[in-house]
């Protein structure tokens, strides 16, 4: 038997919204520690990895490891029926062919029950090697979203270059070119919210090119976290990570574009 409950069901809906345009379906792997999900886009350019810790749930029970094969568009249809402040419970039998989703309003005056048919998904899991990244940037997620959206109107590839002082997003297209730089926030600045700051950890300067179409897709997760962390190395995928307080994180890996 697998059973879990989230006070903020809305968070789960946002999570599904953050993967469903990239990956059509996937296996929720549930074990005693939490839930994980991995999936690639159809072109195998990007990989999304979701990790939810059991500590983030108000209730969590997993007697035996279960795999829930889920079509995200279908799940999203059911989650649409959930109220913004509803509590969400998910239940599945060990060998069942469906999972139940229960939405309950704050005052328990409304309860909704949905059964989602599960799928058998034959999906290979990819191993992500432990990597020492050359540059790690933490910035407001809304700022990253705006940059990706605005630059994609000018070109389809962004060059991200990082130095100790700043991270620069450059774009070029038929109409011209441009760049936007974000300076590392002053370390002595004790005022203000930490999530508003731009923090750069740098081992050595790095520059890589990425498809804006995918980055824009990743920013669907902006609603999940105030900050986003970008990790870059030379000739390796970019990691775009959104951390949710104690629930876990969603990570997107994007293969670089190589300048020929």
């Amino acid at each position: 038997m697998f059973e879990c409950a989230l006070i903020q069901g809305e968070l789960f809906r946002k999570l599904i919204a953050s993967v469903q345009d990239l990956v059509q379906d996937g296996n929720f792997m549930c074990d005693a520690n939490g839930i994980s999900l991995q999936g690639m886009d159809s072109s195998h350019v990007a990989l999304v990895a979701l990790a939810l810790k059991k500590e983030g749930f108000v209730e969590y029970r997993c007697d035996r490891d279960v795999t829930l094969g889920i079509n995200f568009a279908n799940l999203a249809k059911m989650l649409k029926c959930m109220g913004a402040k509803d509590r969400l419970s998910i239940r599945a039998q060990d060998e069942g062919d469906s999972a139940s989703f229960v939405f309950e309003s704050e005052d328990s005056s409304r309860v909704s029950n949905f059964e989602l048919k599960l799928m058998q998904i034959d999906q290979e899991q990819l191993g992500v090697p432990e990597t020492q990244y050359k540059a790690v940037i933490r910035m407001p997620s809304s700022e990253f979203q705006r940059i990706c959206k605005d630059l994609s109107a000018i070109g389809d590839t962004v060059s991200i270059s990082v130095t100790k002082e700043a991270v620069k997003f450059s774009v070029g297209g038929d109409i011209g070119s441009g760049d936007m730089s974000l300076r590392q926030s002053e370390s002595g600045d004790v005022d203000g919210d930490d999530s508003e700051k731009v923090m750069i950890e740098l081992e050595e300067p790095v520059q890589q090119n990425f498809a804006l179409r995918y980055l824009n897709n990743f920013t669907k997760a902006t609603a999940l976290s105030k900050t986003v962390t970008l990790s870059l190395g030379t000739d390796m995928p970019l990691v775009t990570e959104y951390k949710m307080d104690n629930l876990g994180s969603i990570r997107y890996y994007l293969a670089p574009k190589i300048d020929e």
């Binding site: 195998h44 350019v45 990989l47 990819l126 191993g127 994007l254 293969a255 574009k257 190589i258 300048d259």
Partner: peptide
């Protein structure tokens, strides 16, 4: 001028 790499070039099959 850019060539898109695939993620499977970097990550191994588990």
């Amino acid at each position: 001028p850019f060539q898109q790499q695939t993620i499977t070039n970097f990550f191994f099959k588990a």
